[in-house]
Amino acid sequence: MNVQTPFAAALLDPARPCPDGLVTWNGSDPARRFQVYRNNVIVSLVDALADTFAVTQQLVGDEFFRAMARLYACAHPPRSPVLALYGGDFPAFIEGFPPAAGLPYLADVARLEYLRVVAYHAADASPVDPTALAALLTDESALPALRMRLHPALAVLPSDAAVVSLWAAHQGVGALEEVIPEVPETALILRQGLEVDVRQIPAAAGAFIATLGAGLPLGQAAARATALDGGFDLAGALGLLLQSSAITALNPVLPQ
């Protein structure tokens, strides 16, 4: 007997009737009681999204956010009981949600918020000893082919919007009134110790770090960044990675 298929379907679709076969001790309508389960499921999923996407919620207001999150939760319920990482495709949903079209930056702010949660829970990793890097200077011909593994809790988010400034203004850094949302910004998200930092970096530095992080060699990453911006500051970008303990392996053996 398959009870759970109609039960689950009715939980996520309020247009469906209460499932058959439910009874109550006092003969009252079980639909009213079934609504408790529906509330538990939908409200808890909307609350889960509100936890992760707090700035997104502040930007659009509670009523708009909860209505949008509710549509998403019913159409894209979690596939895993690990709820901390629920909502990975919520930013894409926002991007395609017509009532939010007037806020083209909203999806990227949501992406930033999700990457913060991912960074918060990402694996721990120790940085390479700087002396190992210094040793590479003895054979500079090997440097263009040098690959680095970057910290699992590091991510780059290039955006057409002022994603860092918009986010920061909701953390009490800078005034929202002074942010021009259309100005492109690139965010670097990384966990240092127990705290997740967000900082704005030049687009070229973002391309450099993202290319390295994808496992491509140093020469290629530097070339890509320089092509984007002739003034790309390679020493500064490498210094940032070193200072942030973000380089965790040199020339790692790549999985086949």
Binding site: A84, L85, Y120, V164, V173, V198, P202, G236
Partner: peptide, 17 residues
């Protein structure tokens, strides 16, 4: 140059439990 690092005010901003 690289922007001041900004930490979230709430260090429990860890996604949903």
């Amino acid at each position: 140059c690289y922007g001041v690092a900004m930490k979230g005010k709430n260090d429990c901003r860890a996604g949903a439990g």
